[in-house]
C-alpha cells in the first residue's frame, strides 16, 4: 500500500508546488515508485514545474469522471524512471473533485506506487480539503513570516479535525514542517522570523529549511525540479529533507548566514 503525502500550507505562493515536485523527485531518486498529483484544479502548475506540460492529454479530472483510464492520464517522467505525474484540469474548477472520485484514484495509485504526493491548492476550501483528506503524512510548507505561519496553523487544525484519519478516529496524520524561502541574513537583521519562532507557534517537527535561492526560479522556468540542481543550496536542502523524511538523521544546514570569506570581509572593511 502506498503512503499518501499532502503538501499543504493554507497560504498561497509559499512553495507548495515547488516542494511537491522536488519532494516527489527526491523520493523517486531514492528508488521509491512515486507519483505526484496536482489538486489545484483550474490553476494547473505542477506540469510546468515538472516540465511535462506538452505531454498532457488526459488529466486527474478525466479519470475521476471516468473519461479516461488512470494509465492514460499518468505521465512518466523522462529523467527518472520511478516518477510519474498526474496533472489536473485547467478548464474545470474544484467542484470537479468528489470524495468518491479522489478515493477511487488514490486507491488505484496506492496499489502501484510507494508514495503518492498530493500538491494541495491554497486555501481551506474544497480543493485543499480533498488534497489532505486521505493523507497519511502532511508536509506543512511555511514561509518565515507571520501570515504564512498563521495560515499553516489553521491548516494543521483542519488536518486534526477534517482528515479521514481524524474523522474515523485512526492514528492522526503525521505532520512535519518545511520552512521555505528562508533567508538567514534577513533573519539575523530581524526582518524574518527565526526557525525557532515558527516552531514555537506551530509545535510540529521540522523536516527541513529550504533557503531562499535563485536556483528555484531558474529551475521552475526550465521545468526541472530544483532538487535535481544539486549544486544549489535549495536542491541540497530538499535532498536533506527527503532523507529526514525517510528517517535518516541529517543535520540542518543553511539556517545561519554563511561565513564571509576573507575577500568579502576586506571589501566590507574598506567600504
Amino acid at each position: 500500500m502506498g503512503k499518501i503525502i499532502v503538501m499543504t500550507s493554507g497560504k498561497g505562493g509559499v512553495g507548495k508546488t515547488t516542494s511537491s515536485a522536488a519532494f516527489a523527485t527526491g523520493l523517486a531518486l531514492r528508488g521509491f515508485k512515486t507519483v505526484v498529483i496536482d489538486f489545484d484544479v483550474g490553476l494547473r502548475n505542477l506540469d510546468l514545474i515538472m516540465g511535462c506540460e506538452r505531454r498532457v492529454v488526459f488529466d486527474f479530472i478525466n479519470v475521476i469522471n471516468g473519461e479516461a483510464k488512470l494509465s492514460q492520464a499518468l505521465i512518466k517522467d523522462k529523467r527518472i524512471d520511478n516518477l510519474s505525474i498526474l496533472p489536473t484540469s485547467q478548464t474545470r474548477d474544484k467542484d470537479a473533485l468528489t470524495r468518491e472520485g479522489v478515493e477511487k484514484v488514490l486507491n488505484e495509485l496506492s496499489k502501484d506506487f510507494d508514495y503518492i504526493v498530493c500538491d494541495s491548492p491554497a486555501g481551506i476550501e474544497r480543493g485543499a480539503l480533498m488534497a489532505l483528506y486521505f493523507a497519511d503524512h502532511a508536509v506543512i510548507v511555511t514561509n518565515p513570516e507571520v501570515s504564512s505561519v498563521r495560515d499553516s496553523d489553521r491548516i494543521l487544525g483542519v488536518l486534526a479535525s477534517r482528515s479521514r484519519r481524524a474523522e474515523q478516529g485512526l492514528e492522526p496524520v503525521t505532520q512535519q514542517l518545511l520552512l521555505t524561502r528562508y533567508d538567514p541574513e534577513r533573519v539575523e537583521r530581524g526582518e524574518m522570523l527565526k526557525v525557532d519562532d515558527v516552531l514555537e507557534i506551530l509545535a510540529i517537527p521540522l523536516l527541513g529549511v529550504i533557503p531562499e535561492s535563485q536556483a528555484v526560479l531558474r529551475a521552475s522556468n526550465v521545468g526541472m525540479p530544483v532538487i535535481l540542481d544539486e549544486a544549489s543550496n535549495a536542491g541540497q536542502a530538499y535532498l536533506d529533507s527527503v532523507s529526514r523524511f525517510l528517517g535518516e538523521d541529517v543535520e540542518h544546514r543553511f539556517v545561519t548566514p554563511q561565513k564571509k570569506g576573507l575577500f568579502s570581509r576586506l571589501l566590507r572593511r574598506s567600504a
Binding site: R150, G157, I201
Partner: peptide, 27 residues
C-alpha cells in the same frame, strides 16, 4: 492535550477547560 490551532474553537460547557498544549493566535 493537542495544540489548539488558529480557527479552532473549544467550549467547555458548565465546566473547566484544561489545555496542556499551546493555544495559537486566532484560536
Amino acid at each position: 492535550t493537542e495544540p489548539v490551532r488558529s480557527g479552532q474553537q473549544i467550549y467547555a460547557e458548565k465546566t473547566d477547560l484544561v489545555i496542556t498544549a499551546p493555544v495559537s493566535p486566532g484560536a
